Simulated assay, not measured.
Amino acid sequence: MIAIIYHDTFLSEINEDIFENKLSLEMRFTMTPKGIILNSNRNGDVMVKRYGKSFLNFFLGSSVNDAAEFLEKIVACSDVRTIVLRDRLDTSGAGMLFNGLYKKGKVHMVGYHPRFLSRITAEVVHELRNPLTVIKGFVQLSTLTQEFDKYHTAIVSEIDRMYAILENFLSYANEKAQMKSLLPDRLAHELIAYLSSECALNAIDFDYDIAYSAHTCRVDIDKMKQVIINLLRNALEALENQNGNKKKIFLRGTVEDGSYRFSLTDSGCGIDTEVLKHLGDLFYTTKAKGTGIGLSVCKKIISDHNGSFCLSSIPGQGTTVSFTLPFETKR
């Protein structure tokens, strides 16, 4: 049986009593595209009773404009979008982390005051661990081959990416991105360079099939590398303890209606259906040293690109993670 978790699982409907008990630290709202609140949970009621039924009334100064722009982005996107906003109740200076999703004509919003700093810290650790792992791999290869000069450029590039990651988190609230127009197959070759070297180091067969498209996508290449390395690390860990079948990772690129889809498939042990159900939970992980935020980082980056994110798995046969990037529209 195939178990699939889609990108909109973030706001799945559950029993109201369990919802209030389990997520009692969250503020949740349902509102119109213009921010008029239709209903809220008991924590959200605190804001509504104090500041009225307009989401924009929760903020002061420049945060009002940021909130209005955030609403527009949510309506224009098919996935969860995230931002940090300073609301009127905030006195810590950290702001509230808001997740929003537009579905069936309504905006669903979740705000997190607690655990924000621990989340940011965990994300920084998680994201810096990826380039460090790549650097370690290149150093090991250079030791084996005695060809340090061959890997020098790649190692320096990863160090630069670590600096970029730190800069990204410092400007997290501003959602800064270095977007450029790129053909999907050109982007694919950027990603293939990382995939092939890591698979070679781990004695894993790697192959790819990338369809050509004349349409361009607007992408931040460094952020796309973050996504693919996150997904690759998960695939490698799934293949670590596999016996018998040949270890394989396959990257596919396909043209869809209005978008381009990248799919990364491994021949690992797959993911149990019960585990899939919890993959959207904050900090949920099955790894001893995991942070439980790798997929949430990936989903946020793809959401920032107005794409969608999907994970499917067959226990005992493997896992496929895919994401779409919308084509640029000609003016």
Rank of each mutant, 00 (worst) to 15 (best):
124 V>D: 00
331 R>S: 11
129 R>Q: 13
100 G>R: 02
199 C>P: 01
190 E>G: 04
206 F>V: 04
43 N>C: 05
305 H>W: 05
310 C>K: 15
214 A>D: 14
125 V>P: 00
186 R>H: 13
237 E>R: 13
160 D>V: 09
77 C>L: 08
221 I>S: 05
191 L>A: 01
141 L>R: 08
216 T>E: 13
181 S>L: 14
59 F>G: 01
50 R>W: 07
181 S>A: 15
224 M>V: 15
178 Q>V: 15
266 D>R: 04
189 H>I: 12
80 V>M: 06
52 G>F: 13
227 V>H: 01
233 R>D: 08
136 K>F: 10
134 V>F: 14
46 V>H: 08
91 T>N: 03
235 A>T: 10
196 S>F: 07
286 T>N: 10
248 K>A: 10
38 L>R: 10
89 L>T: 03
18 I>H: 11
248 K>V: 15
299 K>S: 03
53 K>Y: 13
101 L>N: 02
306 N>C: 11
139 V>L: 15
117 L>G: 01
83 I>Y: 03
20 E>G: 03
157 S>D: 14
163 Y>W: 10
313 S>K: 05
43 N>Y: 03
93 G>H: 04
32 T>Y: 05
295 L>H: 05
9 T>E: 12
255 V>E: 02
16 E>W: 11
172 Y>K: 10
53 K>A: 10
233 R>S: 08
307 G>Q: 01
317 Q>C: 10
76 A>F: 12
239 L>I: 06
13 E>T: 14
188 A>G: 02
154 A>G: 02
29 F>V: 04
282 L>T: 12
41 N>R: 06
134 V>I: 15
323 F>T: 00
109 M>C: 11
327 F>K: 01
307 G>V: 02
226 Q>G: 13
124 V>S: 00
203 A>M: 07
326 P>Y: 03
241 N>F: 14
189 H>A: 11
160 D>R: 09
43 N>T: 06
145 T>S: 12
292 G>S: 06
108 H>I: 13
75 V>P: 05
155 I>Q: 04
303 S>A: 15
170 L>T: 05
43 N>L: 11
99 N>R: 13
37 I>T: 03
272 D>W: 08
52 G>H: 10
100 G>T: 09
148 F>S: 08
289 K>V: 04
221 I>A: 07
305 H>K: 04
31 M>H: 05
68 A>F: 08
2 I>A: 07
124 V>P: 00
65 N>H: 12
52 G>M: 11
314 I>K: 11
79 D>C: 12
10 F>S: 09
80 V>N: 01
13 E>P: 06
147 E>L: 08
190 E>D: 12
96 M>S: 04
42 R>C: 05
143 T>E: 11
55 F>Q: 07
1 M>D: 13
86 R>S: 12
248 K>P: 02
210 I>E: 00
240 E>C: 07
198 E>V: 13
271 I>S: 09
63 S>V: 02
233 R>G: 02
3 A>T: 14
43 N>I: 04
99 N>K: 11
287 K>C: 03
56 L>K: 13
208 Y>A: 06
330 K>G: 08
88 R>W: 08
164 A>G: 09
194 Y>C: 10
167 E>Q: 07
81 R>Q: 15
68 A>K: 12
72 E>S: 15
285 T>R: 00
101 L>Y: 14
